[in-house]
Simulated scan of single mutants.
Amino acid sequence: MTTFGYLLPTRGIVFSSTSTTELTARASADVVGLARRAESLGYDAVWVGDSVLAKPRFEPLVTLGAVAAATDSIELGTAVYLPALRHPVHVAHATTTLDQLSGGRLVLGVGVGVRPPERREMRQLGVDYERRGALLNEALAIVSKLWEGTAIDHDGEHYRLDGAGIGFEPARNPPIYVASAAFSPSDGFPISIRRRLVEHGDGWVPIAMPPEEYAAGAHHIEELLAETDRPTNAITRAYYLDVVVDDSEAAAIEHAREFYHGYYGEQVTYRSERSLSEEEIRKRGAFGLVDTVEARLAEYVEAGVERFVVRFPTTDQRRQLRAFSSIVDTIP
Protein backbone atom coordinates (compact mmCIF):
# COMPACT_ATOMS: atom_id res chain seq x y z
CA MET A 1 0.00 0.00 0.00
CA THR A 2 1.28 3.46 -0.93
CA THR A 3 1.75 5.83 2.01
CA PHE A 4 1.83 9.62 2.15
CA GLY A 5 3.71 12.00 4.40
CA TYR A 6 3.43 15.77 4.70
CA LEU A 7 6.32 18.24 4.72
CA LEU A 8 5.74 20.80 7.48
CA PRO A 9 6.30 24.45 6.42
CA THR A 10 9.29 25.18 8.68
CA ARG A 11 10.81 27.35 5.94
CA GLY A 12 7.57 28.77 4.59
CA ILE A 13 6.48 30.29 7.89
CA VAL A 14 9.86 32.02 8.23
CA PHE A 15 9.94 33.77 4.86
CA SER A 16 6.22 34.67 4.86
CA SER A 17 5.88 35.98 8.43
CA THR A 18 6.07 39.73 8.82
CA SER A 19 6.91 39.89 12.53
CA THR A 20 8.30 37.82 15.36
CA THR A 21 4.86 37.76 16.96
CA GLU A 22 3.33 36.33 13.79
CA LEU A 23 6.09 33.74 13.48
CA THR A 24 5.56 32.60 17.07
CA ALA A 25 1.85 32.14 16.46
CA ARG A 26 2.46 30.26 13.22
CA ALA A 27 5.04 27.99 14.85
CA SER A 28 2.21 26.69 16.99
CA ALA A 29 -0.57 26.73 14.41
CA ASP A 30 1.27 25.93 11.16
CA VAL A 31 3.91 23.50 12.40
CA VAL A 32 2.72 21.70 15.52
CA GLY A 33 -0.95 22.23 14.71
CA LEU A 34 -0.65 21.03 11.13
CA ALA A 35 1.30 17.98 12.29
CA ARG A 36 -1.62 17.05 14.52
CA ARG A 37 -3.99 17.70 11.64
CA ALA A 38 -1.98 15.48 9.30
CA GLU A 39 -2.05 12.68 11.87
CA SER A 40 -5.82 12.96 12.23
CA LEU A 41 -6.22 12.81 8.44
CA GLY A 42 -4.28 9.56 8.21
CA TYR A 43 -0.92 10.70 6.82
CA ASP A 44 1.77 8.21 7.80
CA ALA A 45 4.49 10.77 8.56
CA VAL A 46 5.35 14.44 8.87
CA TRP A 47 8.67 15.63 7.51
CA VAL A 48 10.90 18.69 7.90
CA GLY A 49 13.71 20.13 5.84
CA ASP A 50 17.11 21.34 7.00
CA SER A 51 19.32 24.38 6.59
CA VAL A 52 21.45 26.39 8.98
CA LEU A 53 22.31 29.48 6.95
CA ALA A 54 21.36 28.88 3.31
CA LYS A 55 17.56 28.87 3.72
CA PRO A 56 16.50 30.21 7.15
CA ARG A 57 14.09 27.78 8.83
CA PHE A 58 13.40 26.10 12.15
CA GLU A 59 16.03 23.61 13.30
CA PRO A 60 14.66 20.22 12.20
CA LEU A 61 15.32 17.92 15.15
CA VAL A 62 14.20 20.51 17.71
CA THR A 63 11.02 20.99 15.66
CA LEU A 64 10.36 17.26 15.52
CA GLY A 65 10.82 17.09 19.28
CA ALA A 66 7.92 19.54 19.69
CA VAL A 67 5.87 17.59 17.15
CA ALA A 68 6.62 14.32 18.95
CA ALA A 69 5.18 15.74 22.18
CA ALA A 70 1.99 16.83 20.38
CA THR A 71 1.30 13.63 18.40
CA ASP A 72 0.84 9.96 19.17
CA SER A 73 1.91 7.64 16.38
CA ILE A 74 2.78 9.50 13.18
CA GLU A 75 6.38 9.01 12.02
CA LEU A 76 8.77 11.96 12.19
CA GLY A 77 11.06 12.36 9.19
CA THR A 78 13.77 14.65 7.86
CA ALA A 79 13.63 15.44 4.15
CA VAL A 80 16.41 15.99 4.28
CA TYR A 81 18.89 16.44 7.14
CA LEU A 82 22.47 17.55 6.39
CA PRO A 83 24.73 15.65 8.82
CA ALA A 84 27.91 17.07 7.27
CA LEU A 85 27.06 20.44 8.85
CA ARG A 86 27.45 18.91 12.34
CA HIS A 87 29.88 16.64 14.11
CA PRO A 88 28.61 13.03 13.90
CA VAL A 89 28.70 12.62 17.70
CA HIS A 90 26.25 15.52 17.98
CA VAL A 91 24.10 13.97 15.26
CA ALA A 92 24.04 10.62 17.06
CA HIS A 93 23.23 12.24 20.40
CA ALA A 94 20.39 14.40 19.02
CA THR A 95 18.80 11.67 16.89
CA THR A 96 18.98 9.09 19.67
CA THR A 97 17.35 11.53 22.08
CA LEU A 98 14.59 12.38 19.61
CA ASP A 99 13.93 8.75 18.84
CA GLN A 100 13.64 7.94 22.54
CA LEU A 101 11.35 10.89 23.25
CA SER A 102 9.10 9.95 20.31
CA GLY A 103 8.96 6.25 21.13
CA GLY A 104 10.88 5.12 18.05
CA ARG A 105 9.26 7.30 15.39
CA LEU A 106 12.26 9.01 13.74
CA VAL A 107 13.06 8.46 10.04
CA LEU A 108 16.39 10.06 9.14
CA GLY A 109 16.46 11.25 5.55
CA VAL A 110 19.94 12.54 4.70
CA GLY A 111 21.55 14.53 1.90
CA VAL A 112 24.41 16.88 1.10
CA GLY A 113 23.17 20.10 -0.56
CA VAL A 114 24.07 21.00 -4.13
CA ARG A 115 23.32 24.66 -4.89
CA PRO A 116 25.43 27.84 -4.47
CA PRO A 117 23.81 28.93 -1.16
CA GLU A 118 24.64 25.51 0.32
CA ARG A 119 28.24 25.94 -0.83
CA ARG A 120 28.47 29.28 0.97
CA GLU A 121 26.79 27.76 4.01
CA MET A 122 29.38 24.99 4.18
CA ARG A 123 32.27 27.43 3.78
CA GLN A 124 31.01 29.51 6.70
CA LEU A 125 30.67 26.39 8.83
CA GLY A 126 34.15 25.16 7.93
CA VAL A 127 32.96 22.23 5.78
CA ASP A 128 34.75 21.26 2.58
CA TYR A 129 32.00 21.36 -0.03
CA GLU A 130 33.91 19.16 -2.46
CA ARG A 131 34.22 16.46 0.20
CA ARG A 132 30.62 16.62 1.42
CA GLY A 133 29.69 13.17 0.07
CA ALA A 134 32.65 11.47 1.72
CA LEU A 135 31.97 13.40 4.95
CA LEU A 136 28.37 12.20 4.97
CA ASN A 137 29.29 8.57 4.36
CA GLU A 138 31.84 8.57 7.16
CA ALA A 139 29.45 10.39 9.48
CA LEU A 140 26.74 7.80 8.84
CA ALA A 141 29.16 5.01 9.70
CA ILE A 142 29.95 6.71 13.01
CA VAL A 143 26.33 7.51 13.84
CA SER A 144 25.25 3.93 13.13
CA LYS A 145 27.90 2.61 15.51
CA LEU A 146 27.05 5.14 18.23
CA TRP A 147 23.38 4.12 17.99
CA GLU A 148 24.48 0.76 19.42
CA GLY A 149 24.99 2.52 22.77
CA THR A 150 28.59 1.44 23.39
CA ALA A 151 31.82 3.42 23.21
CA ILE A 152 33.66 3.28 19.88
CA ASP A 153 37.04 4.07 18.41
CA HIS A 154 37.21 5.55 14.93
CA ASP A 155 40.23 6.56 12.87
CA GLY A 156 38.90 7.81 9.56
CA GLU A 157 39.73 10.31 6.87
CA HIS A 158 37.71 13.12 8.46
CA TYR A 159 36.92 12.10 12.05
CA ARG A 160 38.85 10.50 14.91
CA LEU A 161 37.26 9.17 18.08
CA ASP A 162 38.79 7.42 21.06
CA GLY A 163 36.35 5.59 23.32
CA ALA A 164 33.44 7.87 22.35
CA GLY A 165 29.95 6.86 23.37
CA ILE A 166 26.68 8.67 24.04
CA GLY A 167 25.68 6.08 26.64
CA PHE A 168 22.24 5.01 25.44
CA GLU A 169 20.47 3.66 22.37
CA PRO A 170 17.52 4.90 20.31
CA ALA A 171 14.18 3.18 20.84
CA ARG A 172 14.83 1.68 17.42
CA ASN A 173 17.62 2.37 14.96
CA PRO A 174 16.06 5.13 12.84
CA PRO A 175 15.72 4.09 9.19
CA ILE A 176 18.12 6.07 7.00
CA TYR A 177 16.66 7.41 3.74
CA VAL A 178 19.21 8.46 1.15
CA ALA A 179 18.37 11.51 -0.95
CA SER A 180 19.53 11.85 -4.53
CA ALA A 181 19.07 14.33 -7.33
CA ALA A 182 21.65 12.74 -9.62
CA PHE A 183 20.94 9.53 -11.52
CA SER A 184 21.77 8.45 -15.06
CA PRO A 185 19.85 5.51 -16.57
CA SER A 186 23.05 4.56 -18.41
CA ASP A 187 25.65 5.19 -15.68
CA GLY A 188 23.61 4.72 -12.51
CA PHE A 189 24.25 6.70 -9.33
CA PRO A 190 27.46 8.58 -8.55
CA ILE A 191 29.88 6.38 -6.60
CA SER A 192 29.36 8.22 -3.30
CA ILE A 193 25.56 7.85 -3.44
CA ARG A 194 25.86 4.24 -4.55
CA ARG A 195 27.99 3.47 -1.50
CA ARG A 196 25.57 5.36 0.76
CA LEU A 197 22.60 3.38 -0.51
CA VAL A 198 24.29 0.00 -0.19
CA GLU A 199 25.97 0.51 3.18
CA HIS A 200 23.43 2.67 5.03
CA GLY A 201 20.23 2.96 3.01
CA ASP A 202 16.89 1.81 4.36
CA GLY A 203 15.09 4.10 1.94
CA TRP A 204 15.65 6.14 -1.22
CA VAL A 205 14.08 9.60 -1.54
CA PRO A 206 14.92 11.46 -4.77
CA ILE A 207 13.42 14.72 -6.00
CA ALA A 208 12.58 16.27 -9.38
CA MET A 209 12.81 13.00 -11.30
CA PRO A 210 10.35 11.96 -14.05
CA PRO A 211 8.56 8.62 -13.54
CA GLU A 212 10.55 6.75 -16.18
CA GLU A 213 13.82 7.86 -14.63
CA TYR A 214 12.52 6.92 -11.19
CA ALA A 215 11.68 3.42 -12.42
CA ALA A 216 15.21 3.04 -13.81
CA GLY A 217 16.67 4.19 -10.49
CA ALA A 218 14.54 1.75 -8.52
CA HIS A 219 15.67 -1.08 -10.80
CA HIS A 220 19.30 -0.06 -10.40
CA ILE A 221 18.91 -0.15 -6.60
CA GLU A 222 17.58 -3.71 -6.85
CA GLU A 223 20.69 -4.67 -8.82
CA LEU A 224 22.98 -3.03 -6.24
CA LEU A 225 21.25 -4.85 -3.40
CA ALA A 226 21.46 -8.19 -5.21
CA GLU A 227 25.21 -7.70 -5.65
CA THR A 228 25.63 -7.24 -1.88
CA ASP A 229 23.27 -10.06 -0.87
CA ARG A 230 20.76 -7.67 0.67
CA PRO A 231 17.08 -8.42 -0.08
CA THR A 232 15.84 -6.47 -3.10
CA ASN A 233 13.09 -4.95 -0.93
CA ALA A 234 15.54 -3.80 1.77
CA ILE A 235 15.29 -0.17 0.59
CA THR A 236 11.91 1.58 0.66
CA ARG A 237 11.22 3.53 -2.55
CA ALA A 238 10.12 7.02 -1.52
CA TYR A 239 9.72 10.20 -3.55
CA TYR A 240 9.66 13.90 -2.64
CA LEU A 241 6.85 15.48 -4.66
CA ASP A 242 5.53 19.03 -4.87
CA VAL A 243 1.73 19.25 -5.15
CA VAL A 244 -0.72 22.12 -5.57
CA VAL A 245 -4.40 21.27 -6.04
CA ASP A 246 -6.40 24.11 -7.60
CA ASP A 247 -9.21 24.93 -10.02
CA SER A 248 -6.81 24.90 -12.97
CA GLU A 249 -3.22 23.98 -13.75
CA ALA A 250 -2.44 27.62 -14.52
CA ALA A 251 -3.65 28.76 -11.09
CA ALA A 252 -1.73 25.98 -9.32
CA ILE A 253 1.48 26.77 -11.20
CA GLU A 254 1.16 30.47 -10.41
CA HIS A 255 0.79 29.70 -6.69
CA ALA A 256 3.86 27.48 -6.90
CA ARG A 257 5.90 30.10 -8.79
CA GLU A 258 5.18 32.72 -6.13
CA PHE A 259 6.09 30.25 -3.40
CA TYR A 260 9.35 29.20 -5.06
CA HIS A 261 10.41 32.83 -5.38
CA GLY A 262 9.99 33.36 -1.64
CA TYR A 263 11.34 29.94 -0.67
CA TYR A 264 14.45 29.79 -2.82
CA GLY A 265 15.11 33.42 -3.71
CA GLU A 266 18.22 33.55 -5.85
CA GLN A 267 18.36 29.76 -6.03
CA VAL A 268 15.40 29.78 -8.41
CA THR A 269 17.28 31.92 -10.90
CA TYR A 270 20.87 30.98 -10.29
CA ARG A 271 21.18 29.50 -13.80
CA SER A 272 19.51 32.43 -15.54
CA GLU A 273 17.94 35.83 -15.02
CA ARG A 274 14.37 34.60 -15.41
CA SER A 275 11.94 32.89 -13.08
CA LEU A 276 10.94 29.26 -13.49
CA SER A 277 8.91 28.50 -16.59
CA GLU A 278 5.65 26.55 -16.51
CA GLU A 279 7.41 23.49 -17.88
CA GLU A 280 10.16 23.69 -15.26
CA ILE A 281 7.55 23.91 -12.52
CA ARG A 282 5.60 20.95 -13.96
CA LYS A 283 8.72 18.81 -13.69
CA ARG A 284 8.82 19.42 -9.94
CA GLY A 285 5.51 17.75 -9.16
CA ALA A 286 1.77 17.58 -9.75
CA PHE A 287 -0.28 20.75 -10.27
CA GLY A 288 -3.91 21.48 -11.08
CA LEU A 289 -7.23 19.70 -10.84
CA VAL A 290 -7.73 16.68 -8.62
CA ASP A 291 -7.85 14.36 -11.65
CA THR A 292 -4.54 15.75 -12.95
CA VAL A 293 -2.82 15.25 -9.61
CA GLU A 294 -4.24 11.74 -9.27
CA ALA A 295 -2.97 10.79 -12.72
CA ARG A 296 0.51 12.09 -11.96
CA LEU A 297 0.66 10.21 -8.67
CA ALA A 298 -0.45 7.05 -10.45
CA GLU A 299 2.50 7.39 -12.86
CA TYR A 300 4.92 7.44 -9.94
CA VAL A 301 3.22 4.53 -8.20
CA GLU A 302 3.53 2.57 -11.46
CA ALA A 303 7.22 3.51 -11.52
CA GLY A 304 7.70 1.95 -8.09
CA VAL A 305 7.09 4.67 -5.49
CA GLU A 306 5.96 3.19 -2.19
CA ARG A 307 6.08 6.28 -0.02
CA PHE A 308 5.47 9.94 -0.92
CA VAL A 309 6.90 12.93 0.91
CA VAL A 310 4.49 15.66 -0.20
CA ARG A 311 5.28 19.36 -0.06
CA PHE A 312 2.60 21.93 -0.83
CA PRO A 313 4.46 24.90 -2.39
CA THR A 314 1.82 27.45 -1.44
CA THR A 315 0.98 29.48 1.65
CA ASP A 316 -2.48 27.89 2.05
CA GLN A 317 -1.40 24.66 3.73
CA ARG A 318 -4.74 23.78 5.31
CA ARG A 319 -6.65 23.93 2.05
CA GLN A 320 -4.06 21.73 0.39
CA LEU A 321 -4.11 19.18 3.21
CA ARG A 322 -7.87 18.86 2.88
CA ALA A 323 -7.84 18.69 -0.92
CA PHE A 324 -5.01 16.20 -1.09
CA SER A 325 -6.56 13.94 1.53
CA SER A 326 -9.35 13.11 -0.91
CA ILE A 327 -6.72 12.05 -3.46
CA VAL A 328 -4.82 9.86 -1.01
CA ASP A 329 -7.85 7.64 -0.61
CA THR A 330 -7.88 6.86 -4.36
CA ILE A 331 -4.26 5.64 -4.59
CA PRO A 332 -3.77 1.91 -3.91
Rank of each mutant, 00 (worst) to 15 (best):
A226C: 11
V107M: 00
D329P: 05
W47Y: 13
P174I: 01
A164D: 04
F287K: 03
V52Y: 15
P88M: 08
G288R: 05
T95H: 12
S19K: 15
P332C: 05
A66W: 05
M1D: 10
P231D: 07
M122E: 08
R172P: 03
H261W: 13
E223Y: 10
L98Q: 02
P9D: 08
R119A: 09
D162C: 07
R123V: 01
L161S: 06
Y270P: 03
L289N: 09
E280W: 10
K145S: 13
E39Y: 08
Y129E: 12
R115L: 13
A298F: 06
E278A: 13
P313E: 03
L23D: 07
A238E: 01
R123L: 06
T78I: 04
E294Y: 12
D242C: 09
A68E: 08
A182H: 09
R307I: 04
D316E: 15
G217H: 04
S272N: 11
G203T: 07
Q124F: 11
V178I: 15
V243M: 08
V244P: 07
E59A: 08
S186F: 08
D246M: 09
G33R: 08
H93E: 10
L7F: 14
R318E: 07
F259I: 01
A134R: 15
T95W: 04
V293L: 09
H220G: 05
A298W: 03
R296F: 06
R237L: 06
S325I: 03
I253T: 03
A38E: 02
L125A: 13
A139G: 15
L53R: 14
E59I: 00
S40M: 09
P332D: 13
R322G: 03
S184K: 12
G109S: 10
T232C: 13
G167E: 07
P313W: 04
N233S: 13
L64S: 05
G126H: 15
A94T: 12
K55D: 10
A286W: 01
R86D: 02
